[in-house]
Write a protein that binds this DNA or RNA. Structure first.
Lengths: 189, 189
DNA sequence: GGCGAAAATCTCGGCTGTCTAGATACTTTT
DNA sequence: AAAAGTATCTAGACAGCCGAGATTTTCGCC
């Protein structure tokens, strides 16, 4: 694989991501395209988040954190700084700074847990909720329009697919993370 | 919406993302779940990239850049620093630093375009290619196993779905970016 | 009921990546 | 061949992140 020879015809439309794969059959093409589209979707989603956050005076991490806080609280168990750090992949120091920022501008607040007073519970404030909704509502409207083009049984297929892909990716993530203890053993070149 | 009242039953399994939506019919649930799963997929993908990059002595941006360089070169037209900056959402200064880093450790190299000698073309080096493959191969294997659980016609549906969602998201991205000129006009509170 | 280990969060110093503005190199236009 | 335009690079400042140690609270045990 990875033949650079027969690529001179400049097929940009191939989405530039499926080319690490075979493309012999229609099925191969489908698989390659879906993979590529998933990747692009992730990148573009990041960009949307980044742009939106920037326009509201915060960075991408801040927005993600705000969303995580809302998610947790809406499900009924508010998140703690520690769990937030895990969720975002941040160190404890960074999380404190992050919460300080968001608290300072009034997006969320700290509450001490009454039962275990070591813990701090994060709750969103009025302003934070508005911001999150401003982020999700337009996205949701667009999503609804796309979904309207699919029958129920088709959505079932998509759901099954996304669930399976998600589970697979998380497995992979854990595998990659597990290998983090032995990174630079051999110093070959 | 956003009733916090009837959420006390702690349904973590709801994936914590679909709750900005109605969930009355089976279809509503499907839509909410798919949306949630897409979001989670994006976050997890980021984490995988971050972890993998860290293990190889670079950061998430570096890995994304490396992939972009390979993608472009494999399609037949190598990317320039300028276009790479656009793709990653970085300023020109940051791109220079980025390329310096990657060139220094031997992941890619700079080539002057022979026809337009203002331009610099980025090409991956041996080491960069290895790294990218090390990133994609295990992912691809997993993906293949998931795909094996779907018939051709089902993959067609998934493909149609992802394409539509991708297009929609990119539209949204452009809309958000277009609004970037007038961010902090009113200084209300 | 008080002691030590464990847990959760916070503080502080240092580093790295990014941005902005301006400088440099090459190309195209007139 | 000078001026205007485009692409890239340089330099200084700043913000977010990490890691180690300090602080506060809880839990198990005697």
């Amino acid at each position: 694989m990875l033949r650079t020879r027969d690529v001179g015809r400049k097929r940009r439309d191939v989405a530039a991501h499926g080319m690490y794969r075979r493309r012999d059959t229609r099925r191969d093409v489908l698989i390659a395209e879906i993979t590529a589209e998933l990747r692009r979707y992730g990148v573009d989603a990041q960009h949307v988040g980044h742009a939106f956050a920037g326009q509201h005076g915060l960075n991408a991490t801040d927005l993600q954190a705000l969303i995580a806080v809302m998610d947790a609280e809406l499900v009924g168990d508010p998140i703690t700084p520690g769990r937030l750090g895990e969720h975002l992949g941040l160190s404890s120091g960074s999380v404190t700074a992050l919460i300080d920022r968001l608290e300072r501008v009034g997006h969320l607040r700290r509450d001490r847990d009454t039962t275990d007073r070591r813990k701090v519970l994060l709750r969103y404030a009025e302003r934070g909720a508005e911001l999150a909704m401003g982020f999700f509502r337009p996205l949701g409207e667009r999503t609804d329009r796309v979904m309207a083009g699919f029958r129920d049984d088709e959505l079932e297929v998509v759901y099954r697919f996304m669930t399976a892909m998600g589970a697979s990716l998380r497995e992979h993530r854990d595998e990659v993370r597990a290998a983090r203890t032995e990174p630079h053993r051999r110093r070959s070149e």
